[in-house]
Design a protein around this nucleic acid. Structure first.
Length: 509
RNA sequence: CGCGGGAUAGAGCAGCCCGGUAGCUCGUCAGGCUCAUAACCUGAAGGUCGUUGGUUCAAAUCCUUCUCCCGCAACCA
């Protein structure tokens, strides 16, 4: 089956942070998970390069527009490349390909008569370059940031009405309980839909905003940035208003959008209605996640010094443990916390659990079995039970699990549990005692075999989170590093040469 | 009364839908083990489940008051 996974395209008027890293890692994890199940995946991420704030920042630093965009967008792409994200396409909204689709889409719905022009009157603060609501102003009627009264201005703009589809969307949510995951966000969207929806203003006069896509039907305006940005999900896979959309349709049929909670409304209200106007079904799933806060639940900020920089983390422990931590720690019900200390805690757990397990068994057999996988001929019931438990757990998740935060939470937790179980088994069986007694030879080999084979199962299961660690484990077990999601026990072949390498998770201070 | 979510050992979380001895990881302490990466195994201490009132034989769980935190409530994204 063909699957399509997207991250939001990130607004380049800011540096990439751990939240961007998480969403993009989550997409990569889900892509690998789906691939292991035999699905074809097309995974996109990218940057949103238009809008008023980018325009202002660009002017402030005095760079040529495209140089500015390339520099800022490059910051994101560099991070994702450093994190070895396996994206298939990197979206640039300033690309001609994307702009063409935005214009095509706008033209299409304009000709369908779904866009209307009307005037808007509002209080506009020139300092903020934004319209203000009366409630945003201080007691003197001034903008609190600029201590200046906003001007009452009237503007002509183009609007895309939403209200006509509100009931349709409510019905859609109620009849598709898995559309928005986790469910609490579906509840919130229903709250947004409880009141009539205002028309969405989809244009900005060029006198205010020029960094954007020209409206195809009026050169004096550019497209509102969200209308532009959301189109990336269909421009990336070649939608067009006329002609053959067979390839598009096949990819779009199983589309999952990943997003953080702050952009729920755009994705769950505006976007489905935009798609409806274009004659396109809503995306199959929206996976919404919370924010990363600093330790103690305090918002990360430079002044508090609790900002977690992805590069710093990668320098400290590499990318795999960060991926694992983020997927394991993101909460289903709320926001999640991250700090260097919490990351170290997670790293240590991986080292002591999986890293130590690998090292203790491999070093043992290097000493007294020439590092070769022993025979599985004398496995006893408890050995088989351990392997089957581990294999069945992973088999179930890989077979029936659906991409979601629940899934990455559960799978990462089960991996740690499996590591614990194998460590406990190893300690209980005490193979170092068996090794000293020649009459216990068969039992010794059975215990070692069981431990090695369990480790193999863990390595395969952990691949979406820690691809590089997974491959290192498999190679140390004398396997090639091809990953197949087949969770059958007793696969290792007797006599296979294992290799004691460097620690998977070296000690960090 | 704007909408949704959160508040549970020193830290990070689960449990809440469907009420019945409060659980997991880390940390701390004690014991064990010695194959292994300041590791592993076993056990212990540590919580009036944010606050108020209520329903009930029984409340972390259901209803209610208030407080604090995160989003949304933008023609910022």
């Amino acid at each position: 089956m063909k699957k399509y996974i997207t991250t939001p395209i990130y607004y380049i008027n800011g540096a990439p942070h751990v939240g961007h890293a998480f969403t993009t890692i989550l997409g990569d994890v889900l892509k690998k998970f789906e691939q292991m199940r035999g699905n074809d995946v097309f995974y996109t991420t990218g940057t949103d390069e238009h809008g008023q704030k980018n325009q202002s920042s660009c002017q402030e630093c005095g760079m040529a527009v495209q140089d500015f965009i390339d520099m800022r967008s490059g910051n994101f792409q560099k991070l994702f490349d450093a994190m070895k994200i396996d994206y298939d396409f990197f979206v640039h909204t300033s690309s001609q390909q994307h702009k063409n689709v935005v214009k095509d889409a706008l033209d299409y719905i304009y000709k369908k008569g779904l866009i209307k022009k009307k005037s808007y009157e509002g209080l506009y603060c020139e300092g903020c370059e934004q319209f203000k609501k009366p409630s945003d102003l201080d007691e003197h009627g001034n903008c609190p940031d600029h201590q200046k009264a906003p001007k009452l201005i009237t503007e002509e703009n183009y609007f895309f009405p939403l209200e006509q589809d509100r009931q349709w969307l409510i019905d859609y949510i109620n009849t598709h309980p898995d559309w928005i995951k986790p469910k609490r966000f579906a509840k919130e969207v229903l709250g947004m839909l409880a009141e009539p929806l205002d028309d969405l203003c989809i244009s900005r006069p060029k006198s205010r905003v020029w960094l954007g896509v020209d409206l195809p039907f009026d050169d004096d305006f550019v497209t509102y940035i969200w209308f532009d940005a959301l189109i990336n999900y269909i421009s990336s896979i070649g939608w067009k208003s006329q002609g053959d959309n067979a390839a598009f349709n096949e990819t779009w049929a199983h589309c999952t959008h990943l997003l953080a909670k702050d952009i729920l409304k755009t994705h769950a209200v505006y976007w489905p209605i935009m798609l409806k106007a274009l004659g396109i079904e809503p995306p199959e799933h929206l996976i919404v996640h919370g924010y990363w806060l600093g330790e103690g639940g305090i918002k990360m900020s430079k002044s508090l010094g609790n900002v977690v920089d992805p590069y710093e983390v990668m320098d400290l422990m590499g990318i795999d443990p960060l991926r694992f931590y983020l997927c394991n720690a993101m909460s289903l019900s709320g926001d999640a916390q991250i700090s260097i200390d919490l990351l170290k805690q997670g790293y240590k757990q991986l080292a002591n659990n999986i890293g130590n397990l690998q090292m203790r068994v491999l070093k043992m057999i290097a000493k007294n079995l020439d590092g070769k996988v022993p025979s599985a001929a004398h496995l006893e019931a408890e050995d088989k039970a351990l392997l089957e438990n581990v294999a069945n757990t992973f088999e179930r998740i890989y077979k029936y699990g659906e991409p979601s935060l629940e899934l990455v939470n559960e799978l990462s937790a089960e991996i740690l549990k499996a590591g614990d179980a194998v460590n406990a088994y190893f300690a209980t069986q005490a193979p170092w005692v068996l090794a000293k007694d020649e009459s216990k030879r068969e039992r010794y080999e059975a215990v070692i075999y069981t431990t090695l084979d369990a480790l193999r199962l863990i390595a395969v299961a952990v691949y979406p989170f820690m691809p590089s660690i997974a491959k290192k484990i498999l190679v140390s077990l004398g396997q090639n590093d091809e990953i197949k999601a087949e969770f059958k026990p007793v696969v290792l072949k007797e006599g296979t040469q294992t290799i004691v390498g460097d620690p998977l998770f070296p000690f960090i201070a």
